[in-house]
Nucleic acid binder design. Structure first.
Lengths: 137, 137
DNA sequence: TATTGTTATACTCTATAACTATA
DNA sequence: TATAGTTATAGAGTATAACAATA
């Protein structure tokens, strides 16, 4: 079977990302979290009083789509919202949120190690800078 | 603003893939194609008499989800289906499909060159093998 | 028995427009 | 005027179960 897609870096990028995110989601399932939830928890934990809009900009998620995400985390008792002024609300981890984030950090650490280990040593240190050039520049 | 996500290769992979697929989709828009359409056209063009199930396995798309995709390509007059036996159908490009694929190939070529050019030269040759290790092994 | 093509369905993710209230 | 938070909605992508017909 002839597969011309296998020569294309762009296609490899999409398939690799899909495979890795599927694996990451599988590892997060026991925690009852999706990967968007984890990235939000990480940023809220690292930046107390972050607002929903700021968080959305950092994650490149539309304001409107933050609503169900933050609602989910709030319903799960992982975050609270405290008014900063009349229109903004600061996001904060609850004790349960801190605990869940600690669990998530362990999953992340193991997942990232596993991901890196899959890459042949000769190419390993080049992946992160190459990827960063594709989305941060 | 503190962003611990920026240290994670897995996060960079997801964001890079998202950014690149968004750009690729933008470039395909004038052709009236999505990237799944293009990958299907490429594989059908390279493998006459490929069946829908075989194509789905190569693209890692469920059989059921091939139906709307191939229906779209058929409605656009880009492919035809000819019975191979009582239950399988071989997929073939029409003349319009060949022409559209030729256009798509030019878009792909320019896009892939642009993508590669974004990567610092020192890391450039390492990206494809690193990505392949993540989804093909 | 396994596979092909298909229908139906549901869930996730993403994008846009519009509204209210506040800065 | 611009921004924050929200609602509603629609489009994609993806996953599962089930079915009839055929290998």
């Amino acid at each position: 079977m002839n597969d011309p897609l296998l020569d294309l870096p762009g296609y490899a990028l999409r398939r690799a990302a899909g495979a890795m995110m599927a694996e990451f989601s599988r590892r997060l399932e026991p925690l009852g979290l999706r990967y968007a939830d984890v990235s939000a928890l990480l940023l809220i934990g690292a930046n107390p009083t972050l607002t929903a809009s700021q968080l959305g900009r950092m994650l490149d998620i539309q304001r409107a789509n933050m609503v169900p995400l933050l609602g989910r985390l709030t319903d799960a008792g992982l975050i609270t919202r405290r008014p900063l002024d009349g229109k903004s609300h600061g996001l904060h981890l609850t004790a349960a949120g801190e605990a869940k984030l600690a669990e998530a950090r362990r999953v992340i650490e193991q997942f990232e190690s596993w991901l890196i280990a899959k890459i042949p040593a000769a190419h390993r240190d080049h992946l992160k800078p190459a990827l960063d050039a594709l989305w941060r520049d």
